[in-house]
Amino acid sequence: YGLVALGLTLVYGILHVPNFSHGALYMVGAYVSYITMVDFGVNYWVAMLLAAVAVALLAVLCERLVFNPLRHAPPIHDKIAAIGIMLFLEALVQMQWGAEFRRMPTPYTDILDIAGMTIPAQRVLIIAGAFSLMAVLHLFLKKTMTGSTIVA
């Protein structure tokens, strides 16, 4: 949830568009990783990387084909376009893969006992990954010329 909020904040800070389709992009990423692992038998980490690349390409496509042409339009047009992308992606995924609940397989099924707390290894991985990505983003924004440009 922290990474989703961070992504929303970053997109709003750069484009000044509340991207209502942000969650739908995450959903597409989840389906890409699920389908790659389950249907094609790809390794967990390779599937995650493919999902990240697929969502990045889809986001760039949305920015170039939808949001960029609306840059000088009234602000309501960006909001309507973001809602339209969200509805389109949800309908596309439901048409392609249905609306049934699916559970993504994980190679991390261990249960850990940390300071008296019982926690699945998958959650520890998620928490560590989220904090790591937040730290890398912070360093990128503070220490690189591109990051300084984004902040400005």
Results as ranks from 00 to 15, higher is better:
residue 3 L to E: 00
residue 80 I to C: 07
residue 121 A to E: 07
residue 137 L to Q: 02
residue 85 I to R: 04
residue 129 G to R: 02
residue 117 M to Q: 11
residue 68 N to G: 10
residue 149 T to P: 03
residue 79 K to S: 15
residue 36 T to S: 12
residue 48 M to Y: 09
residue 134 M to Y: 04
residue 123 R to Y: 05
residue 15 L to Q: 07
residue 66 V to F: 10
residue 99 A to I: 13
residue 94 Q to P: 08
residue 87 L to T: 10
residue 50 L to P: 05
residue 93 V to K: 11
residue 147 G to T: 01
residue 76 I to V: 13
residue 130 A to W: 01
residue 44 Y to H: 14
residue 76 I to C: 08
residue 32 V to N: 04
residue 145 M to Y: 12
residue 64 R to C: 07
residue 88 F to C: 11
residue 39 D to H: 15
residue 36 T to I: 07
residue 149 T to C: 12
residue 112 L to K: 09
residue 131 F to Y: 13
residue 70 L to E: 06
residue 29 G to L: 02
residue 110 D to T: 11
residue 25 L to N: 08
residue 111 I to H: 10
residue 110 D to S: 15
residue 4 V to E: 01
residue 51 A to G: 03
residue 40 F to Y: 15
residue 77 H to S: 14
residue 77 H to L: 15
residue 96 Q to H: 13
residue 54 A to H: 03
residue 146 T to I: 13
residue 141 L to R: 04
residue 12 Y to D: 11
residue 19 N to C: 00
residue 150 I to M: 13
residue 136 V to P: 02
residue 20 F to V: 05
residue 59 A to F: 02
residue 57 L to F: 08
residue 57 L to I: 12
residue 125 L to D: 00
residue 16 H to S: 14
residue 20 F to D: 03
residue 80 I to R: 11
residue 3 L to Y: 00
residue 103 R to Q: 15
residue 77 H to K: 14
residue 92 L to I: 11
residue 10 L to W: 00
residue 27 M to T: 10
residue 75 P to E: 08
residue 50 L to M: 15
residue 118 T to S: 15
residue 65 L to S: 11
residue 30 A to G: 15
residue 65 L to W: 11
residue 120 P to D: 09
residue 2 G to T: 12
residue 103 R to H: 14
residue 116 G to M: 01
residue 65 L to R: 10
residue 43 N to C: 05
residue 69 P to K: 09
residue 25 L to T: 04
residue 48 M to D: 03
residue 116 G to W: 03
residue 39 D to Q: 15
residue 1 Y to H: 13
residue 59 A to V: 05
residue 31 Y to S: 07
residue 124 V to D: 02
residue 50 L to G: 02
residue 146 T to K: 09
residue 84 G to P: 04
residue 24 A to C: 06
residue 37 M to R: 04
residue 19 N to I: 00
residue 111 I to M: 14
residue 140 F to P: 01
residue 93 V to S: 08
residue 74 P to H: 12
residue 4 V to S: 00
residue 102 R to V: 14
residue 43 N to L: 10
residue 104 M to S: 14
residue 10 L to K: 01
residue 89 L to K: 03
residue 112 L to G: 11
residue 131 F to P: 00
residue 129 G to Q: 02
residue 147 G to V: 00
residue 118 T to F: 10
residue 96 Q to I: 14
residue 33 S to Y: 01
residue 121 A to L: 10
residue 46 V to D: 02
residue 66 V to H: 05
residue 79 K to D: 15
residue 7 G to C: 02
residue 90 E to D: 14
residue 89 L to P: 00
residue 41 G to C: 03
residue 28 V to C: 05
